[in-house]
Design a protein around this nucleic acid. Structure first.
Lengths: 228, 228
DNA sequence: GCGCGACAAATCCCATAGGATATGGTCGCG
DNA sequence: CGCGACCATATCCTATGGGATTTGTCGCGC
């Protein structure tokens, strides 16, 4: 539908396969492409207004993420995703993210803490103002900075994967999420400043599980798990 | 080097991008392509004897796995992987796999248990005989069946990712691994038969951590973390 | 000698065309 | 009504090419 090949001035923007991948992720989680749906590369290419090449590359990336499955010579299908799967995945994400917060509480120096306060202030400001697009970006930057502060690079990447299941607009316009987020960030920063790993861990786990509840509610709302 | 496009009778074999992906994984973990190395699609295509298209698709899959990183308009680089990263990742894998074993201990019925015994017997037999290739396949089948018996599909997939870091030949010819594996499988099966989740969990966690130690030792041996 | 800007070469990224191969459906036959 | 062969369709990979961008080199001025 919408032209993806637009701008011309790309800068360091992700390449086309990555944008197609994101697009497909959103369509799957939006309930547009339910589990079991066949994805035909050529058909998708026409719909997205690009050539089959980047579409196939995006599908390979989604396969590596188990979002779709490859059936050799028969195309791709959207992978199953039960309610229990979401619960399990976010339980793992919560544990890891909590661990990262705990490590950050031990490792963080004054400079890093100041940087996190700035990020958190940006999120708060955008929540006050109400700028959905920028809010999602600010929230991601806050968490990225926090996870990076833990010093565990690969674990930080691993939890970043959870964001794949939470496209921006699923939470930025939720009033409940906004208020909970402000409170969670405050608790987190206090714990980090005090060097209190346990409190930081608990606050972060709760924050992640809030995201889980939001995703489950969304998927139920769009009929992701309805019969046929 | 070796032609990947060989057989002609493919059956249900994975498609070319998936085979290229595996090839690249092995070359990275073998220390042939160290972190920071630039990967040029066209160059790799020539080396592997395939066209650039499936190579690019494989690189996109590896990017989704954070094994390589994409630099738009500049190609791909092998992602960093510190010793601490491996420790962290396998700590997570051990916890999850242990959880799956515990669930299996609760959920397994007589039929499933019998199937697992058959798989374990196949592994034992191959260890006696000494058939590296088939052994890796049998081991994978045993664990796949066990993970599937837990009923947690997504978690089962998640731990399957750990196998990406353990190409077959890294363990099948290790005497220590063989004896430890036979013992671990026996303990596991006994715990599953007795419906003892805690023992199953502990046995599985130990089994995974054995794999971790093997990988770390291998990476040190091939100079993966040597200077420059 | 050193930094800096312009040109040239190399490379990536994506589009497109085409052929080999496997799949799924359809039709005819037993 | 079940079953096997044929045919249309789609996938998968190759090959090629062009536009855009980055990188490397050279020469100039300071």
């Amino acid at each position: 539908m919408v032209a993806l090949v637009d701008t011309g001035l790309l800068g360091d923007a992700p390449a086309l396969p990555e944008r197609v991948e994101l697009q497909l992720r959103e369509r799957i989680l939006a309930g547009d492409l339910r589990p079991g749906t066949f994805l035909r590369p050529d058909r998708l290419a026409v719909e997205l207004g690009v050539s089959p090449t980047p579409v196939r590359e995006a599908l390979q990336a989604l396969r590596a993420d188990d979002m779709v499955r490859a059936l050799p010579r028969r195309g791709f299908v959207v992978a199953p995703l039960e309610r229990g799967d979401v619960i399990d995945l976010f339980a793992v994400q919560a544990r890891i993210t909590g661990e990262l917060a705990a490590r950050a509480a031990r490792a963080l120096d004054a400079e890093g803490l100041a940087g996190l306060r700035v990020r958190a202030a940006e999120v708060d400001a955008l929540i006050e103002a109400g700028e959905p697009g920028d809010l999602a970006q600010a929230e991601r930057r806050f968490h990225t900075a926090l996870n990076r502060a833990s010093g565990a690079r690969k674990l930080a990447w691993l939890v970043g994967r959870a964001a794949h299941y939470l496209p921006p607009r699923f939470y930025t316009d939720r009033r409940a999420w906004r208020t909970a987020t402000v409170a969670a960030h405050r608790t987190l920063l206090d714990a980090l400043a005090a060097g209190d790993p346990d409190t930081a861990r608990a606050a972060m786990e709760g924050h992640v599980l809030d995201g889980r509840d939001l995703l489950v509610a969304h998927l139920e709302a769009v009929g992701f798990w309805d019969e046929t």
